[in-house]
Each structure stands twice: as structure tokens, then as C-alpha cells.
Amino acid sequence: MHTLEIRDLVVALTETPDKPIVKGVSLTIKSGEVHAVMGPNGTGKSTLSKAIAGHPDYTITSGDVFLDGKSVLEMEPDERARAGIFLAFQYPSEIPGVSIANFLRAAVQARLGEGEDLDAVAYYKNLYAKMDMLKIDRKFTSRAVNEGFSGGEKKRCEILQMAMLEPSFALMDETDSGLDIDALKIVAEGVNQLRGPKLGVLLITHYQRLLNHIVPDYVHVMYDGRIVKSGDKNLAIELEAKGYDWVKDIAVPAMS
């Protein structure tokens, strides 16, 4: 059982530290739970996930993030990753010339101890098992990471990496952006496959439609850098019916 606790987190762009984007967010995720964070564009959802992962463009000006009670703020992004935090990117980078298989192999190797060598046979066995589970064609992993990928392929590549690296917590940043409905279903199916008692998920989305396919345990509505309302999956449905203007009305008293 693991816990990811976000406490009073304030985040700004590193170059403009006096203009916070996330203005005090607290949220606790436990293994096995799926938390959806919804909200209009520009409200700080993506910033929240990137700051937790340690993106250099963002600076945490106050508050803290604890993984199993230990602050991650002093850790490098790669240390946070190896400690079990996985960020599924909204716009994953291309890595020309590096195949998915080799990239993942390097990532798995990076998790082994000093002087410990990866068992290549076991690695490929595991990789193929995960690909079968996610119904991904074998040829896929010989392609260079994200190079020339369609939106759907990029997201599947993220899901495959998540499956291979088995994080304790997955921060999924706008997983549905740029996907048509068929791609969305495939990606959602992948996430549902990985869902289980060992994984905690923070699912960031603009649209309610993703939550038809990945049913969250909790829903948080974010507006202007704050969580203004939390509830269960029904909150998402309510939000869909009433629109984001509704949260603005809630947000006003919260800010005063």
C-alpha cells in the first residue's frame, strides 16, 4: 500500500515565480484509487502533474509532495521516476533513432542496482506479454520512440511504458487529447487493464467523455489553480450537464 500526498501545493513557472499557476492544492491518492481531476483549460491541471514529476520549467514555491511520507521535492526527476511516479505525457517527446524496445530496456536497466545486469531473455518475455495484454503489434517496439507516431500511437506507447515500468502512481496528463473515439477506447482499455490494487492514478482531463471509459473513484474539479469541488463519479456527470460556468460560480465564494 502506497500513498501520494499533495499538500498545499503552490506552483509557478520557473521564470515567473511570483505568478502562481497552482495556488494551493491538497490531494491524497492511495494505491488502488483512481482520482480524476477535471477543469477548464489553463486552470493548472497539467502544471500540477508536471510539478509532481519534477519538470524544470516549474517551481514549487510552497507546499510539498510526499511519497509514502517522504518529500520528493529534493529528488531529481529520474529519482522520482524510479521511486514509482510515472507521468503519461500529453505531448510525449520523439527520440529519433532509439527504438521503443531499447528505450524501455534502458529504463528497466536504470532500475537495477549497480553492477546488476538486465536479463535480456526475461525482459523480452515480459515486454511481449505486456504487448499481448495491450493488444499491441510486435513490430511496434522496433520503431523509434514517438517518431512519426499518430496521436493514438503516442498514447499507446505511453501506456506500454507504464505497463513495463509498473509505477506505484501514474499521473495521466490529458490522456484523451487529440484522440478520436476509437483511439480513446483503446487507450482507456489499456488503463483499465493496468488498474488494480497496486496502482494509484491521477487522471487529468478536460472532457467528461474519458470518464465514461475509465470510471474514477473520485472526481476533483479544478478552477483557477485550486480544487473547488470534490466528489465521486457522479460529480463528473453533473459537471457535464451544467458546464464549467457552474464551477466558476462555486469558485467565487471559495476565493473570497
Binding site: 529520474d78 510525449p92 517527446s93 527520440i95 534502458a106 529504463a107 536504470a110 515500468l165
Partner: peptide, 13 residues
């Protein structure tokens, strides 16, 4: 920087 961050996020130094 974005590419490096992406790879670091997967656990590479």
C-alpha cells in the same frame, strides 16, 4: 530539455 526530461521521467539519469 523536454526530450531529456521525458527520458528522465522514465528513470534514466
Amino acid at each position: 530539455e523536454e526530450m531529456i526530461f521525458y527520458m528522465q521521467q522514465r528513470g534514466l539519469t
